[in-house]
């Protein structure tokens, strides 16, 4: 197992390498001037694009360019982001905690709601509850993320005045906390708890509820559908009949025996679900005015900021590769029969 994880970790740089080749290949479709922007590190340099083109041989062949670009990246220079007016890496460091906090706040309810509703639908097969849940899942699956987000902002925040939108601004944080607030993780809810300031954690949480709810509505429907059908599969198997015949209570049969096996297809769905979640986070951050990586990337795409987008793509590649590794490890935890050599 340890060997397997180590080998998979070594694969991540390979994935990133292939990804960067593809990106650089696509970059060749741009003009040398546009490509030069990827090497600019300060505002002043933008005025001297010709020098940069010459310095980095941007009008030469693909291999020459790639080598130079890669050596810059390996030295930690991912370029200058026009959107945030600072080096890309600085922005990533600032904005990553925001997106991470949102993703974590949504992830737990997505899994819990999806698995729980799927189990309920399967155990009450063809009852009214099952039919209602199935219709709900189809409707949830048909809702575009941005529509859900707009309706939540309008109705719950605008109309009812509940919760909040936008992340806790740093200035407000300093005002609330005074000088002695330490940022351990950058996630305001957790930092608030660690500092013993429940009020700050609550304030940060209040602003997380709506964006997280939007993600839960859109993503958990898919998990519920998979969970329902795999649970039905498992409940029809012989070992479940045996368990029932032994006289085990129905609760034990469903929750201890069947559900554990039914979770395997759900874990397989984790990859596509993460993709849907990342897509959702970009749109949701934009609508809820949440200063995370997604909002940054969306603005970069609108303003044709290639450098920012390239960094974002590499980051997504890294996240997806790590997530797939975690999925494989999760398999082993749920199903001890699976062994990796």
């Amino acid at each position: 197992m340890f060997n397997y994880i180590a080998r998979r970790l070594l694969q991540i740089p390979v994935v990133l390498f292939v990804l960067s080749l593809v990106i650089m290949g696509l970059m060749q479709l741009l003009s040398p001037q546009q490509r030069a922007a990827a090497f600019v590190t300060s505002d002043k340099q933008i005025e001297h694009l010709d020098q940069i083109i010459e310095k980095y041989h941007l009008d030469e062949g693909f291999l020459v360019q790639y080598r130079l670009w890669a050596s810059e990246v390996l030295r930690g220079n991912l370029g200058f982001s026009r959107i945030s007016k600072e080096p890309v890496l600085t922005t990533v460091r600032k904005r990553f905690p925001a997106s991470m906090e949102l993703a974590l706040a949504a992830f737990v309810p997505i899994v819990l709601v999806g698995v729980w509703l799927g189990t309920q639908a399967a155990t009450h097969r063809d009852s009214f509850l099952d039919q209602a849940l199935r219709v709900m899942a189809i409707v949830g699956w048909s809702l575009p993320t941005f529509v859900v987000a707009i309706w939540l902002v309008a109705w719950v925040y605008g109309g009812l005045g509940w919760f909040g939108i936008g992340r806790l601004p740093s200035s407000l944080l300093i005002e609330l906390a005074g000088g002695d607030f330490r940022r351990y993780t950058g996630l305001f809810t957790i930092d608030g708890l660690l500092n013993g300031r429940l009020d700050i954690a609550a304030e940060a949480l209040k602003r997380l509820v709506l964006p997280a709810a939007a993600l839960v509505i859109v993503v958990s429907a898919g998990i519920m559908r998979v969970m329902r059908s795999s649970m039905l599969d498992e409940l029809g198997k012989d070992y479940v009949r045996t368990a029932r015949a032994k006289g085990l209570p129905e609760k034990t049969v469903v929750y201890k025996h069947a559900r554990r096996n039914a979770l395997i297809p759900v874990i397989t769905m984790a990859g596509p679900m993460l993709g849907r979640m990342i897509g959702g986070i970009v749109v949701i951050e934009l609508i809820f005015n949440f200063p995370g990586l997604g909002e940054w990337a969306a603005k970069a795409a609108l303003q044709l900021d290639v450098t920012t987008l390239l960094a974002f793509v590499m980051l997504i590649g890294l996240i997806m590769a790590t997530a797939n590794l975690l999925v494989d490890v999760a398999y082993v935890i749920v199903d001890p029969r699976i062994r990796y050599e």
Partner: peptide
């Protein structure tokens, strides 16, 4: 292709 987020 399948694991890369379409939006990106």
């Amino acid at each position: 292709m399948l694991s890369f987020p379409g939006l990106v």
